[in-house]
Design a protein around this nucleic acid. Sequence first.
DNA 1: GCGTATTTGGCATGAAATGCCAGAGAAATT
DNA 2: AATTTCTCTGGCATTTCATGCCAAATACGC
Lengths: 160, 160
Amino acid sequence: MPAMKLDAIDRKILDALQANGRLSNVELAERVGLSPSPCLRRVRLLEEAGVINRYVALLNQDAVGLPVSVFISIKLERQHEEDLDRFQAEVSSYPEVLECYLMTGTRDYLLRVATADLAAYERFLKTKLTRVENVASIESSFALRQVKYTNSLPLETTGG
Amino acid sequence: MPAMKLDAIDRKILDALQANGRLSNVELAERVGLSPSPCLRRVRLLEEAGVINRYVALLNQDAVGLPVSVFISIKLERQHEEDLDRFQAEVSSYPEVLECYLMTGTRDYLLRVATADLAAYERFLKTKLTRVENVASIESSFALRQVKYTNSLPLETTGG
DNA sequence: GCGTATTTGGCATGAAATGCCAGAGAAATT
DNA sequence: AATTTCTCTGGCATTTCATGCCAAATACGC
């Protein structure tokens, strides 16, 4: 995905939709200083270009009973292409895994997992993660508190 | 936020809106097996109860020119209540910081930061993070690839 | 079996999304 | 500087949707 050229209006649109993905097109148009028609056309273009991936509802982890966030550092035995691919496919299939990154440094992967409690986390480890082939070591760190969580990327709407 | 009691239809609604926050109420109602009126009422209740935090558009980091994700482990000099509060407030104000967690273990905080490139990251470090008071050490790990990234919490819609 | 409370479904109204077309603005060419 | 061309914008008409209200149905307790 190449970086797309975005003008000031595009960035305003993206900023507004990052903050509220359910803004009506009429209100969005007002905020960015366009009439509804061209505003909607820009939004559609941004969607088709893949700048806007998708729209989602963000839930409260506590309210749905998944208050525990765990970060897991994982090291593999072998790091060949096919080893990585197999591991990634397996881990991506677990709904408990919200984020997974291939990392530089001494640890190969970093995962964020959401579970109901420690017992559920232990169950996840025992029945899923530790059974994945090629895993050399697993290191869990628990989040005591989510200080900040946002999906809003800083688009620097002040400049060109 | 206490965990709220959600029935099977609520979980279907939440799952659908986690996948597509812009579903029309008419289509959402069809999917969960209700008519539009009670479906909308449930959605409003979930919003008011705080189960649904908000709706957002998710952007492609590469497309908006912020392809670099960095995880930063931070250790503070002192961990008194007011020290933590001050650090958290400062770090939360940085738009580059997408996630921040207070952690167990040897490191106090874990941050995820998005930047345009290494130069921008260095600028963030020098002008912002290293100038925050009370920071004992900073350890950066770069993500080579985002293997999985989702906000969809697993709600186990199969069971009660 | 009966009464109560909660939830659902349908209808009416007002607002919004969306496609179409003409007009305005910007850029390139001569 | 004038003209041509291309791109983007704004307004209108149609269709779809959101939303509030009320009656009916379902679940629950007695």
